[in-house]
Design a protein around this nucleic acid. Structure first.
Length: 340
DNA sequence: ACCTGTCAAGTCTGG
DNA sequence: CCAGACTTGACAGGT
């Protein structure tokens, strides 16, 4: 199985390259020239996009083929008070340049709208905000000129005291989204409410691919044991991706491999928190089992130290390779994992 | 230059 | 019923 690794949003290696510079609404409304204030937001967005491009070039230089964009590329993008503002016109060229570069380097890119995007919510205004947030993220992918292989990963949301009803509400409300939005979404198991089995059931029902977070699974496994995860759930998760490839007319698993997230617990007292780095052994242990089913897989690292954690993991993988642990570091940032 | 409280947004818990 | 925790990088205002 061929595995590629990626990291999230910012680089700890490239200096002064934040893709998430912003402005508070309090600061924005203090400026009395509204046009100038809006131009300032657009200037910040251009700076964020130009730093995003710098990070993509850094990825290319280090054979990193997977990256998650910051959701904060455009400051105050979905704020109520800026509802009439369309930043995409001014940012057209900047978005296109980022997208063109990602395509040229054949990078897998994505977004991860954060916890304000909740399709299980019983509150109509929260649902409306969630749709607005998804539209914002989809418009960014479209402005980059990226096809539907590039997606926005979300969680199902809260349980509100009744997880079953909540899951049904998720399926109903999510199902009402137009195809243009639905085809841009993946579903991920979370660390305290919807576990891997429940998330997979929902993903199968609404027909979107599922992203498996193996750290979330470790702290929120439900009744799913390790054996059932790799022998029972993983083949079904891989199948959600096969269906998506079929829908997109892609023939090879390498064209859109299943995706997982990996991170390590911050501390025994805070097992849900993300550690600075990622321990290689538990990840390799999962990958070797997944390799029974899959020929390709992409793994997003969610570590505090971002790309620095990725570089350290690659060094640790080389160490495992030298000990004959079923790992082989290839060129192009790819790692070959042998099944066991 | 550095430190600390705050930030647009949601949900859950505990008092 | 409401305040605070959760989580995160960066702003904003202070020294």
């Amino acid at each position: 199985m061929i595995v590629r690794f990626g990291f999230v949003a910012m680089s700890l290696v490239v200096q002064n390259a934040s893709p998430s510079r912003t402005q508070t609404y309090a600061g924005f409304s203090k400026l009395d020239d509204r046009d100038a204030a809006i131009r300032r937001l657009e200037r910040l967005a251009e700076e964020n996009l130009s730093n995003t491009l710098r990070i993509l070039k850094h990825c290319r230089a280090h054979d990193i083929r997977m990256y998650r964009f910051s959701s904060k590329l455009i400051p105050l993008a979905t704020h109520e008070a800026l509802a009439g503002w369309d930043p995409f016109e001014a940012l057209h060229a900047a978005f296109r340049e980022v997208g063109d570069y990602a395509k040229k380097q054949d990078m897998r890119v994505s977004f991860h709208p954060d916890h304000f995007c909740v399709f299980s919510t019983p509150r109509p205004e929260v649902l409306a905000n969630s749709i607005r947030d998804i539209v914002y993220h989809v418009r960014m992918l479209e402005a980059m000129g990226l096809d539907e292989r590039s997606k926005n990963n979300i969680h199902m949301g809260g349980a509100y005291g009744d997880k079953e009803t909540s899951a049904e509400r998720f399926v109903r409300q999510f199902g009402e989204l137009e195809d243009r939005l639905r085809h841009r979404i993946t579903l991920e198991n979370d660390d305290k409410t919807f576990n891997a089995k429940e998330t997979l059931a929902a993903a199968e029902t609404v027909q979107v691919p599922m992203v498996l977070d193996i750290h979330h699974h470790a702290v929120n496994p439900g009744d799913t044991g390790e054996e059932e995860l790799t022998e029972g759930l993983w083949p079904r998760i891989a199948e959600t991706w096969r269906k998506e490839r079929e829908r997109l007319g892609l023939s090879s698993e390498a064209d859109l491999p299943p995706k997982i997230h990996a991170s390590s617990p911050k501390h025994v007292s805070d097992p849900r928190g993300h550690a600075d780095f990622v321990s290689a052994e538990p990840v390799v242990s999962f990958l070797r089992r997944a390799a029974r089913t899959s020929a390709a897989l992409d793994c997003m690292l969610e570590a505090k130290h971002k790309d620095a954690a990725l570089f350290r993991l690659m060094e640790d993988l080389k160490e495992l390779e030298s000990r004959g642990e079923g790992v082989k570091v290839l060129d192009g940032g790819r790692v070959e994992i042998s099944p066991f």
